[in-house]
Design a protein around this nucleic acid. Structure first.
Length: 475
RNA sequence: GCGUCGGUGGUAGAGUGGUCAAUUACAACAGACUGUAAAUCUGUCGCCUUAGGGCUACGAAGGUUCGAAUCCUUCCCGACGCA
């Protein structure tokens, strides 16, 4: 992976650049489509591509549970598996520590209104030792499906109740099997309801896990280099016989031929003439809640974390934010992180947040909002969000947005394109097409917004564009 | 014509003397959703209201009762059976 900055915007941290991976180029700032279970919900890859998406984000935890990372590896990696030819990244499962753990059943999410510790929301007795095999400590968190200890996280599968233990090493191993271009270190996303003491403890843990993630990444990719580099690729391996001992440790089902997959990757890298020591880039994740000292400390530590001189290739900024805390947290962090590496603001992507993030030095975003809102009947427009099921749209025969270039809004087949009345009808009728057309529009809206933001950086018109857009958007 | 069963809020359908303005589902209306346990979830859903309550309601009209959607009588309507 390579990151190049094309232009920096004066009087801000904003920059426009490119990330090059063996599967293609991402023009940053960019919005990454979320495809948790190796699918951008309701869309096929061609639709995703036509929308203008340049990278898709899968999830370690979800794909590990179903269909299993081994299956994805055998399929040739997440991109090949889902028939998406472009760049991919996988989240480490760190967010599920939060969403299935501290946040479980509490109505707390990425964005909250909580800005002070709320003891009532905290679980009792957490941070104890790892549960014994086959046991789930119900008493320690009512209904919670994730439990953190210093070594890793116990998850109780939401699919079948089975218990799984994921460590930083395990997360990286799974992510290697998933085979994305960019992977993330395993982290703990904390709830803002936790007190400062817990935030600090969790942060220390995240930092230790960052180093362990990086070390495991190094271990695997150097093993991969040894085993699969051209010079050492032995004839027996080409036949698909089991790889040597070193890789058997890495891949539990070593009997299966894995050579094709790696040969393909090696070949691809060589064809592109890239001098990359490994095809997989790893991003470290900065946490620290809303506390300035913790955020800055985290940025410093993650930035300088290295294993044998190998540093993180980029950075994720994680956490559950109160809206008003987000810009300051992002700014604190990006002022410290090395300028020459990409930063990904994890899970954030409302229009206002995109401007805020870019202005404060963010290069990559991902967010479930466009697809989830779309499926649930809320559509982005330049003058704010609309709920398409509302009565007023039942007989509105105009497109969602007149000058929108998305498939849903554009004239097709000699007609005028889809109308609000038609979308309202599809939603009221619970038709599958509803979610698809709405997701296309919303994803296009957000992806295109970020593209326009990028262009405004190149043109030097960022602040003008921002002010005009937000004025209209907020009515 | 005789007999049987039934008529409940926009719909379906519970309730069969007081805890019933009436379970529930659907529809309707409004809202939420930010590294996806989400094609999900929440609220409202007779009328009025100074939000405590007031008023009108379970086909219609009478009646029994302290009290009726619930029991009785007559009528109207529907389904089925027999003529």
């Amino acid at each position: 992976m390579q990151f190049k900055i094309e232009k920096k915007l004066e009087n801000s941290l904003a920059r426009a650049g490119t990330i090059t991976t063996s599967h293609g180029v991402i023009h940053t700032p960019a919005f990454v489509a979320v495809g948790t279970k190796a699918t951008v919900k309701s869309l096929n890859p061609e639709q995703v591509k036509d929308i203008g998406v340049e990278m898709v984000l899968g999830n370690t935890y979800h794909l590990y549970l179903q269909p299993g990372d081994e299956t994805v590896r055998e399929a040739g990696g997440i991109g090949k598996f889902m028939n998406w030819p472009g760049p991919t990244m996988t989240d480490s499962g760190g967010f599920q520590v939060f969403s299935l753990g501290a946040a479980y059943g509490k109505g707390v999410s990425k964005i909250t209104t909580i800005t002070t510790p709320e003891p009532l929301l905290r679980k009792e007795g957490r941070n104890s030792s790892r549960p014994a095999k086959g046991e789930w400590p119900e008493a320690e968190g009512v209904g919670s499906l994730a439990k953190v200890d210093d070594d890793g996280v116990s998850f109780k599968s939401h699919l079948d109740g089975s218990i799984h233990y994921i460590t930083p090493e395990k997360s990286i191993q799974i992510q290697y099997n998933l085979g994305a271009d960019i992977i993330f270190a395993f982290d703990e996303c904390t709830s803002p309801a936790e007190d400062l003491k817990y935030q600090a403890e969790a942060l220390e843990r995240t930092h230790r896990w960052a180093e362990r993630s990086l070390a495991e990444h190094q271990r695997i990719c150097s093993a991969e280099e040894n085993i699969f580099s051209r010079s050492s690729l032995t004839p027996s391996l080409r036949d698909g016989t089991p790889p040597p001992v070193a890789s058997q440790k890495i891949f539990s089902s070593a009997a299966k031929p894995v050579t094709d997959f790696f040969e393909r990757r090696v070949g691809e890298r060589e064809r592109q003439g890239e001098k990359i020591s490994n095809g997989v880039a790893i991003f470290g994740i900065v946490q620290g809640g809303r506390e300035e000292s913790l955020r800055k400390k985290s940025a410093k530590i993650i930035a300088k974390t290295n294993v044998d001189g190998k540093y993180f290739d980029g950075f994720g900024i994680g956490g559950s934010f109160a809206k008003k805390d987000m810009s300051s947290a992002v700014k604190w962090v990006n002022e410290i992180l090395p300028e020459d590496k990409p930063r990904h603001l994890l899970g954030i992507g409302e229009p206002e947040d995109l401007f805020m993030g870019v202005e404060n030095g963010v290069d990559l975003f991902d967010c479930v909002a466009p697809t989830r809102l779309g499926r649930n009947g809320t559509l982005y427009t330049k003058s704010g969000k609309i709920i398409i099921m509302n009565k007023q749209y039942r007989n509105d025969y105009s497109p969602v947005e007149k000058d929108c270039g998305c498939y849903t809004c554009s004239p097709r087949l000699g007609g005028a394109g889809y109308t609000k009345a038609y979308l309202a009808h599809l939603f009221h009728g619970k038709e599958m097409l509803a979610g698809t057309l709405a997701s296309i529009h919303n994803l296009y809206f957000i992806v295109n917004l970020v593209k326009n933001i990028r262009q405004s950086i190149l043109d030097g018109t960022f602040f003008d564009f921002k002010n005009k857009f937000l004025y209209n958007y907020r009515n």
